[in-house]
């Protein structure tokens, strides 16, 4: 019997980000319009594996998901041990643009979730001409914090377990058990302080209030999709953000939470396929 391979393949990319050499792991599947997928904080590109296994997507899109530096199988840069990891708007934007340029992607679509959704808003503000369309999942210009991130990295609390336990409530109750627990499993695996360092961008550095009004959706279409069970980035947060962006298309997704692509792939598909269809028909 032939080996039962899944369609995606993984490789390591050598590239510089802000002049620093990096070794970036990514997976890809499909052909056509490049669709770069950005994972959530403290997680990695595996969150998009269902999208990469969906022929309805991959027949028209080349789906790529890279692990951010410090995440998944991407290596932190030399000397990482000397500093506390902190993601910023600038470093996050630089990493995404470096990946797209190194891969020689022609005006890709970028889709990000959570912190990935927030940075997609920044791409729309500052680099819209480089993208064909932008999709922000669970995104808003600002969200009210709901816990103290000091708990995420300390010797007397298991980082992986507490990260997963905190975010478990952001998953909708309708999420199938296997998908829920796979999503949490990924959250248990980030390096010490990585989730906390990502949230520095989310909570301290990445406040985009008053900046999203500069987004020009005629230059690059912007789609905002948020799950109704997401109490971190609430539907109200997304709707408020969308009101400041003329032309932004917004949708609240039923029976989904903060991790739509991994917590309930079949349900997410119902919402994302029509968006991808529209992007493909415009291209």
């Amino acid at each position: 019997m032939a080996p039962a391979f899944e369609p995606m393949i993984g490789r390591y990319l050598r590239t510089e980000i802000d002049g620093v050499p990096h070794r970036i792991y990514f997976e890809e599947a499909g052909q056509g319009i490049p669709l770069v997928c950005l994972h959530t904080a403290g997680a990695d590109g595996r969150q998009y594996r269902h999208l990469m296994s969906d022929p309805e997507v991959t027949r028209r899109f080349r789906v790529l998901a890279f692990d951010m530096p410090w995440h998944g199988k991407s290596t932190p840069p030399d000397g990482w041990q000397k500093d506390e990891y902190r993601l910023t708007t600038a470093s996050y934007t630089a990493a995404i643009r470096a990946f797209c340029q190194a891969m020689e992607l022609d005006r890709p679509v970028a889709m990000g979730c959570s912190i990935g959704g927030r940075i997609v808003l920044n791409l729309a503000i500052a680099h819209a001409s480089e993208f064909r369309a932008l999709i922000a999942l669970e995104a808003a210009d600002f969200q009210q914090p709901w816990y103290d991130t000091a708990w995420l990295h300390r010797p007397d609390v298991h980082g992986g377990e507490v990260c997963a336990a905190l975010v478990s409530g952001l998953i909708a109750p309708q999420s199938p058990s296997a998908a829920r627990h796979e999503t949490l499993w990924m959250y248990m695996q980030s390096g010490p302080g990585v989730f906390k360092g990502d949230l520095y961008f989310y909570r301290v550095d990445g406040d985009l209030r008053d900046k999203v009004e500069a987004i020009d959706t005629t230059a690059c279409p912007l789609y905002l999709l948020t799950g109704e069970y997401d109490f971190s980035c609430t539907p109200e947060d997304t709707l408020r953000t969308a009101r400041h962006i003329p032309g932004a298309e917004v949708q609240i997704m039923k029976e989904l939470g903060h991790f739509p692509m991994s917590e309930y792939p079949a349900k997410f598909r119902e919402y994302i396929l029509p968006v991808l269809e529209r992007i493909a028909s415009r291209s």
């Binding site: 709901w146 007397d156 409530g169 109704e228």
Partner: peptide, 30 residues
């Protein structure tokens, strides 16, 4: 319903509160 489905959804909306030494809680949060 959304917003009532998790302990921290309740605390965020002000319908529940947690205080004291939170370490044993966070050590065994799930």
């Amino acid at each position: 319903e959304p917003g009532w489905h998790d302990l921290f959804a309740l605390t965020k909306r002000g319908e529940a509160s947690i205080d004291g030494d939170l370490r044993p809680l966070l050590q065994n949060l799930q």
